[in-house]
């Protein structure tokens, strides 16, 4: 089969045409398929964590906990919110350079960095929450069993999150390597 034949098929390939109104809708982030989900998740998390940050001291007897533990909880909550905001803006901008090579390389570095921040902050957030709410408790077998279950759940969530990030990073890394390679080997 000739390459001109392939070119002709490509250039004349059928296309589903969109109306101007449909295209206009697509320019709005509210109608964006994945950013809409990420935005909703970030908004819910940010609002609920900010709310929690304001009420936890009164509602969960913050005055009975040591100062360092209250500070630690407030710091990790703020870090989680900031990471959400930072992550949203980073993910929503995959175009990072004037050509594909530069853009994919920069995006790869940023996504890799974001994955490290997100995994670390999520794990620390879970750990601090567990520590905060279990500090001062007198543990019996039942409570220890529940605590073990929560810790295992946190570890599993961290592992699955790691796998998801890793899959994305790997696919970007493969592309970066293909751009760097000289094409001979």
């Amino acid at each position: 089969m000739e390459i001109n034949n392939i070119k002709s098929i490509w250039q004349n390939a059928s296309a589903n045409s969109k109306s101007e109104l449909e295209l206009k809708r697509m320019t709005n982030v509210i109608n964006h398929p994945s950013l809409k989900k990420i935005r909703t998740k970030f908004l819910i998390e940010t609002i609920s964590l900010t709310f929690f940050l304001f009420i936890y001291y009164d509602w969960f007897e913050g005055n009975t906990k040591p100062f360092y533990l209250n500070s630690l909880l407030a710091t990790i909550l703020l870090a989680y919110i900031l990471n959400d905001v930072f992550g949203y803006f980073l993910i929503s901008r995959p175009i990072r350079g004037e050509n594909l090579k530069i853009s994919i390389e920069k995006y790869y570095v940023r996504i890799k960095r974001l994955s490290v921040y997100s995994l670390s902050i999520s794990f620390l957030y879970g750990t601090v929450m567990i520590y905060y709410f279990s500090s001062g408790l007198i543990f019996n077998n039942k409570k220890l069993f529940i605590l073990a279950g929560i810790v295992i759940f946190l570890l599993l969530m961290t592992y699955f999150s790691y796998r998801t990030w890793n899959r994305w990073i790997k696919s970007l890394k493969i592309q970066v390597n293909e751009f760097i390679s000289d094409g001979i080997n």
């Binding site: 295209l23 697509m26 320019t27 398929p33 995959p94």
Partner: peptide
């Protein structure tokens, strides 16, 4: 394909 189409139009608009 439809999701990607929307993503592309959105990125084109931003750039």
């Amino acid at each position: 394909q439809e999701d990607l189409y929307q993503e592309i139009v959105y990125q084109l608009w931003k750039s």
